[in-house]
């Protein structure tokens, strides 16, 4: 056991010898520069803790769904950057709130919500082909730790089912690929595709794709817009639907 710990610590130290920071780096393998804050209407509040570590949380959601994510830049290996993200989420308060009668009753009023802790781990590589094209493959898994009586249905809603089915399935895997690059010095594009593998028994899959343009106005503001598309399995046998939503966000940065 001691040997394993020593090897792991050694690997972590070796991997942490380099740093790669950038502003407006959400979704990339870079982390925020030390001391910089960024927040968006639909993006989490992020903080550059040091030159290799970034902390983020959806601050407004914290009251009903405490969450925190640690993003760690590990290593730049001959053009390949390696970063990982580790999140902890407690959705039970929110699930209890939306289990109600009437409007916004997403779950039935008689639902029994257990304590649910979600631990997510994402691993990203990034290869800079040139300034116009970064290739970012990613892979991840999430596990749900559930405690207490549980009796509530899945939320079979586009963009939500694939993220919440883990409350019932206890594990979920995802793989994806991002393409990202500059159009002009201030304009950046992002095109991605993700696959979620949700249910081991029924082999349910969900695919998501998004395309956005990010306008880095200055160090203080960035504006992004595009669309997100989902093609997903659901518990319904007749439903395998494609849904699309517009994406728009204003981000603000400090320092």
């Amino acid at each position: 056991m001691k040997k394993i710990i020593i090897i792991l610590v050694f690997c972590f130290v070796m991997l942490s010898l380099s740093a790669e920071t950038a502003i407006w780096s959400k979704g990339t393998t870079d982390v925020l520069p030390q001391g910089r804050w960024e927040v968006g209407i639909f993006q989490p509040l992020s903080y550059g803790l040091n030159e290799t570590t970034e902390l983020s949380t959806f601050a407004l959601a914290d009251f009903v769904m405490p969450n925190i994510t640690l993003k760690k830049f590990w290593k730049n290996m001959e053009g390949w950057k390696f970063t990982s993200k580790h999140s902890l989420l407690y959705p039970s308060i929110l699930l209890n709130i939306i289990a109600k009668e009437g409007a916004l009753g997403i779950l039935p009023d008689n639902s029994k919500i257990p304590h649910i802790f979600i631990i997510s781990n994402q691993f990203m590589l990034s290869y800079c082909y040139n300034e116009y094209l970064n290739i970012i493959p990613k892979i991840g898994f999430s596990v749900a730790l559930v405690s207490g009586d549980s009796d509530f249905p899945t939320i079979d809603m586009p963009f939500v089912y694939n993220r919440t089915s883990i409350y019932h399935e206890n594990a979920m895997f995802n793989v994806g690929l991002d393409l990202r690059g500059n159009i002009t010095p201030k304009l950046e594009y992002l095109v991605d595709i993700d696959k979620f593998i949700m249910d081991k028994e029924y082999c349910e899959y969900s695919y998501e794709h998004k395309a956005i343009i990010i306008w880095k106005i200055n160090r203080r503001f960035a504006l992004s817009g595009g669309y997100k598309l989902s093609y997903s399995d659901y518990p319904s046998r007749l439903q395998k639907s494609t849904n699309i939503i517009p994406l728009i966000d204003l981000q603000v940065g400090f320092k």
Binding site: A103, L104, I106, M157
Partner: peptide, 13 residues
């Protein structure tokens, strides 16, 4: 409806 956000009804047809 793909999802009825009321009373926990969810998908309806």
């Amino acid at each position: 409806a793909d999802f009825v956000p009321s009373d926990g009804l969810g998908r309806m047809n």
